[in-house]
C-alpha cells in the first residue's frame, strides 16, 4: 500500500517490521543509521519514513529537521523514550506523527496509511474550504458546519479548528497551535488550549474528544474518520 523506509538501529526489529509490514501490503526498505536513512530517503523517495529517535550517528530530531529542508515526505517518529519532550521536539522539527515502542504491527501500519493519505490531501493549502470527516469549514466566511449543522464559533475558535483541519490527522504540538493561532507571544499559555478545546468539543457535541483528540502533554489533532490511530 505504501513504500515505507524504516530507520532504526536495531537490525532484529527491522527484520520483524519487514516481515510484518510486507504481509500487510507495504513495500519496506530499511536503514540502520541516520546517514543511510538520509541518503535512502533522497534516493528511493519513499512515501513515508519511520524514524527511530535514538540513532547511533545522529539524533533523530536532527534527521527530521534535515529531511524537512528538502522534502515533505511524511515522517512517523518511533520513540523508545516515552518522554513527551522528545516527541514534541520531533513534531516541531517537522515530524507528522509518533508511535511509542513497543508497538503492534497493525497500529504502525494504520499510522503509516494515515500519514500517506494526509500528505496527498494537504496539497490544497490555499483552498478556501476544508472538509475533515463531518466537519466543513468555509475559510472565507468563517463558517463551520458539523454533520450539516451550523456551528456558532468565535473567531479564535474558528482559527483553532481550521489550524487543526489544515493538518488533519497530524499531531499539532501545543506550541505550534498557540504560535499560529494566538501569535508568537502566547507559546506558554497552555490553559487557553484546554479552555478552547473544551468549548469547541461542546459545540461539536464531541465531549469524549474522539474527533478533536488530545495527546496529553503533547498537543491536539483532528481525527480523520474511518482511520484507526
Amino acid at each position: 500500500m505504501a513504500q515505507v523506509l524504516i530507520v532504526d538501529d536495531d537490525p532484529d526489529l527491522l527484520g520483524v517490521c519487514r516481515v510484518g509490514l510486507d504481509a500487510l501490503g507495504h513495500q519496506v526498505r530499511t536503514a540502520e543509521t541516520a546517514s543511510d536513512g538520509l541518503s535512502e530517503t533522497a534516493i528511493s523517495r519513499p512515501e513515508v519514513v519511520v524514524l527511530d529517535l535514538g540513532l547511533p550517528d545522529l539524533d533523530g530530531v536532527e534527521v527530521c529537521r534535515r529531511i524537512r529542508t528538502w522534502s515533505d515526505v511524511p515522517i512517523v517518529v518511533l520513540s523508545a523514550d516515552g518522554t513527551e519532550d522528545r516527541k514534541v521536539e520531533a513534531l516541531e522539527a517537522g515530524a507528522d506523527d509518533y508511535i511509542t515502542k513497543p508497538f503492534g504491527m497493525r497500529e504502525l501500519s494504520a499510522r503509516l496509511r494515515v500519514a500517506v493519505r494526509h500528505r496527498a490531501a494537504a496539497g490544497s493549502e490555499s483552498a478556501t474550504e476544508l472538509q475533515v470527516g463531518l466537519l466543513h469549514l468555509d475559510l472565507v466566511h468563517y463558517q463551520a458546519t458539523y454533520a450539516g449543522r451550523e456551528l456558532d464559533l468565535t473567531a479564535r475558535e474558528f482559527e483553532f479548528l481550521s489550524y487543526l483541519a489544515r493538518h488533519a490527522g497530524k499531531v499539532c504540538t501545543r506550541r505550534m497551535i498557540l504560535e499560529n493561532v494566538w501569535g508568537p507571544g502566547y507559546a506558554s499559555e497552555l490553559n487557553y488550549l484546554k479552555v478552547y478545546a473544551y468549548r469547541i468539543r461542546r459545540k461539536l457535541g464531541d465531549e469524549q474528544g474522539q474527533f478533536l483528540q488530545s495527546d496529553p502533554s503533547v498537543g491536539y489533532r483532528l481525527a480523520v474518520p474511518g482511520e484507526a490511530s
Binding site: A23, K101, P102, M105
Partner: peptide, 28 residues
Amino acid sequence: RKPLARIKASSSTLADEEVEISPEASQS
C-alpha cells in the same frame, strides 16, 4: 523496552489473522 519492542512487533504480526505470512517467516 528493546526486547519488548521486538517481541511486540513479532507477536502482533503472528497474532493478526488477516496477515498472511510464509511458514518460514512465522518461524523466524
